[in-house]
Write a protein that binds this DNA or RNA. Structure first.
Lengths: 240, 240
DNA sequence: TGTATTTTTGTTGTCGACATAAAATATGTG
DNA sequence: CACATATTTTATGTCGACAACAAAAATACA
């Protein structure tokens, strides 16, 4: 999952397909925001992006509007667009919503999962185990997100899935910001919790699924909070 | 709250302010979609809109991207944009999410409401009572939505508020579609439930607020479902 | 030297025109 | 007359240029 640098991802001679440009810009910028390649609060220049991607400002602009709709960038009218800052004062709102969505989606997954869902969930669980084994922290964060998103999809409620994915993405950004304080023990706790979660979903045990999801959410919230408290650079700017 | 027809809402001589155009188009089209002035599934022509609003296609396009982000319109690549159809097969997802958000937001409101919140909520409750008295159904539907949205705001969690407002808007569209089957009794039941809800929020009684919200949600879901079942034009096209 | 005012600069918001994709229509062939 | 193929139509996607706005820089003035 490498990031293409200065992505002129079309060969010199080939012409980019119609309607492909916005999607490419949107995906790339979204990844870079969640990656922290683009620091929270840093300005985004439309002209620079149009040069980088080799397309005009119009499609760049559309991608920005989409990103703004998801809260990933903030547009200052007539001035610039910045990468959405992390809203520390209101983190409790985030934690509250995140916990509820963990529970709701996991419950629904236990109720509605199909055999195909279970295969996909297990595959991601295995992938996560590998990342833990390899001590690849960025990979762990990403796969963890995909694991829970897949469970949400199995729950089969697009409103929950959509909100949850947004929350998971925001969480990914927070974890990235603080992954320095990751220790070896935590990932293994998560691994076990994931295992129990999958088992509960598999046998359709809604109450247990809910309980585990709840505990898991609290675990993660606690970890993020601890990381933030431990870090005294909270309000420092992220270096470019 | 009248809809301006063919809104060239700037006087002939005056120049529209920069950045005002997109907002105007967005607001107008959003209202017309929720109003059913624009029928679900009907195509939206960018050129026609640009003529109607007297601005070029670029800002129209941005408004469309925003609306698409909220699921109010659907873009068929290289073809057209249509008003989002009502997703009948998945209505249960909608009802489930709506019920949960009713409960969560009302609970939080009971926990977090300020005096100023209570004033705003009471004002909307009075407004609703007036609409019931006047038997003004469209007004009832709109004020009802704003009443619950205000409660959600008092709960002070932007993730819930945002999702809930989206769900309430979609619900408004459904109610509009079927308000023919409104009878005199239901609005009065809602009125009483609202009264109890406000009282519980006022005295910070979280459990009671939750219970009432739950009952209220079930009441509304039941009503919508009954309306749909009673209506055999479900799959008929809405006349333009 | 410090403050108010003008000019410059950089970046966004909007425009009109053109290129292109997909559907609708017309054309040709067995 | 059915069916495949070419052509036209229609609306979108993209472009390059210009205008307007807000901040920064330069200038005027007390």
């Amino acid at each position: 999952m490498s990031v293409e640098e200065y992505a002129p991802d079309h060969l010199p001679g080939t012409k980019r397909k119609r309607g492909k440009g916005v999607g490419a810009v949107y995906d790339t910028i979204k990844h870079e925001i969640l990656d922290l390649t683009l620091a929270p609060g840093s300005p985004i220049d439309e002209v620079r992006l149009s040069e980088r991607f080799g397309i005009s400002r119009t499609p760049i602009r559309e991608a920005m509007v989409k990103l703004a709709g998801e809260g990933l960038v903030v547009t200052l009218p007539n001035r610039f667009t910045i990468v959405a800052p992390i809203d520390f004062p209101n983190l409790s709102q985030f934690f509250d919503a995140l916990s509820l969505m963990y529970r709701v989606t996991t419950r629904l997954a236990a109720a509605n999962r199909t055999a195909a869902d279970l295969v996909r969930i297990r595959a991601l669980q295995d992938h996560y185990a590998e990342a833990v084994e390899a001590r690849d922290v960025p990979e762990m964060i990403e796969v963890n997100r995909n694991f829970h998103a897949e469970i949400a999809r199995a729950g089969n409620n697009r409103y929950y899935t959509e909100l949850f994915e947004r929350l998971l993405d925001e969480g990914r950004r927070l974890l990235r910001l603080y992954y320095s304080s990751y220790n070896d023990k935590l990932p293994r706790i998560y691994l076990q919790e994931h295992e129990d979660m999958v088992a509960a979903i598999e046998r359709g045990d809604i109450d247990t699924a809910d309980r585990i999801a709840h505990a898991h959410a609290q675990q993660i919230v606690k970890q993020i909070q601890a990381s933030i408290t431990a870090d005294h650079r909270v309000n420092a700017n992220i270096p470019l």
